[in-house]
């Protein structure tokens, strides 16, 4: 008598569901990074530069290689302030 395949069905379901969650999370990260691979070991300098990228391109991972910034870029630099100063 062969292996009873009914016993393997739960394992197939478990593996399949792990695959679904993993695939969904990977797709989500892919979308959040604009189709690129994610950044890691991001330090304060990288964070500041990514914020600048966002001001330039409108997206945290957006990139542009223009030599001159679009109009108004020099005016949208935010001041980080504390509540007591506002």
């Amino acid at each position: 008598m062969g292996v009873p395949f009914e016993a393997l069905i739960p394992y197939a379901i478990m593996l399949g569901m792990f695959g679904v969650t993993g695939g969904a999370l990977s797709k989500l990260r892919h979308m959040q990074n604009g189709g690129k691979r994610g950044r890691h070991s991001v330090d304060q300098w990288d964070r500041v530069l990514m914020e600048r990228d966002k001001r330039l391109t409108g997206f945290l991972r957006g990139q542009s290689d223009r030599a001159e910034a679009p109009d108004g870029f020099e005016l949208n630099n935010p001041w980080k302030v504390e509540k007591r100063f506002m």
Binding site: R52, D53, L56, G62, S64, D65, R66, A67, E68
Partner: peptide, 10 residues
């Protein structure tokens, strides 16, 4: 003066 328009990777 115009600011630099290149982002971090360039």
């Amino acid at each position: 003066v115009k600011e630099i328009g290149a982002s971090s990777a360039p």
